[in-house]
């Protein structure tokens, strides 16, 4: 049976070829055909998951809650020593320089990444901004989010830390990080549909071998796991799921 591998919409376009190469190698390692698909945004990915069209997905922490709890997906691996953190940015030349300057209502641009949105909303709570005080505009990618903040179209932007770091130095210079998360324990996780449970160990073996090969360093970095992967054990993932669940507003 052909497996269907969903590449996460938050993968940087520059790194997509590496994900396709990974899928080619996975097919060889698993001895079965598989198709990798890039979803344009999280809305499209969520629809595919709900329709049962996804067997393997490198899911963000907020989607992991849903996929593990509602659909019985199995955790396979997570990146070693890599945490997903988020950052709220404002314009470098704007009036807001610290959290205390934030007005009662805030216009914000973000992508539709649910983990980033959840964490950034929490980061703004100390400024007394709850769900109703944020006017959110969803844009297709982080470059557009940066542009919306720089041109003053919105007052703030929500970024995955890694995506912010990936912006050009010029763009970053025009933005001011206002507040950053330091949660440490939230990360993406490779999840497998329950119907393909027999692939879990072969997947772990293959990714473990890859993680230990010094020649794979740049590949691993492009996949967002510069220190390789570790088996995602049920307890760790359940804990992360509870934590993300607790952060729902």
């Amino acid at each position: 049976m052909r497996y269907r591998f969903a590449i996460s919409p938050d993968v940087h376009a520059r790194d997509l070829p590496t994900w396709f190469v990974l899928n080619t190698r996975l097919q060889r390692a698993l001895g079965r055909p598989g198709r990798a698909t890039v979803h344009d945004d999280f809305g499209a990915l969520h629809r595919a998951c709900a329709a049962g069209e996804v067997d393997l997905v490198y899911a963000n922490a907020a989607d992991t809650v849903e996929l593990v709890r509602e659909h019985g997906f199995l955790p396979v691996v997570r990146p070693r020593e890599v945490a997903d953190e988020a950052v709220v940015v404002v314009s470098a030349t704007g009036p807001v320089t610290e959290l205390d300057d934030v007005p009662d209502r805030l216009t914000v641009a973000a992508t539709d990444a649910p983990d980033v949105e959840r964490i950034c909303r929490i980061l703004l709570e100390p400024a007394d901004l709850d769900a109703g005080a944020i006017d959110l505009t969803v844009l297709r990618n982080y470059v557009l989010v940066a542009k919306a903040v720089i041109t003053g179209q919105v007052e703030a932007g929500f970024f995955l830390r890694r995506a912010h770091d990936n912006l050009s130095a010029t763009t970053r210079g025009m933005l001011r990080p206002l507040i950053s998360s330091r949660i440490h324990v939230v990360s993406h996780c490779l999840l497998l549909a329950p119907g393909l449970a027999e692939l879990r160990e072969p997947l772990r073996d293959f990714l473990h071998t890859l993680s230990r090969d010094p020649a794979e360093q740049s590949t691993l970095a492009e996949l967002g796991a510069p220190h390789g992967w570790q088996p995602a054990n049920e307890d760790d993932v359940e804990f992360m799921v509870d934590l993300m669940d607790a952060l729902k507003q």
Binding site: P126, A127, L243, A246, L247
Partner: peptide, 18 residues
Amino acid sequence: RAGVILGHTSVRRQPSRR
């Protein structure tokens, strides 16, 4: 876990002054 309450988890975040 597996339908049984094994314990509790608490997550605290920064509250607003108001």
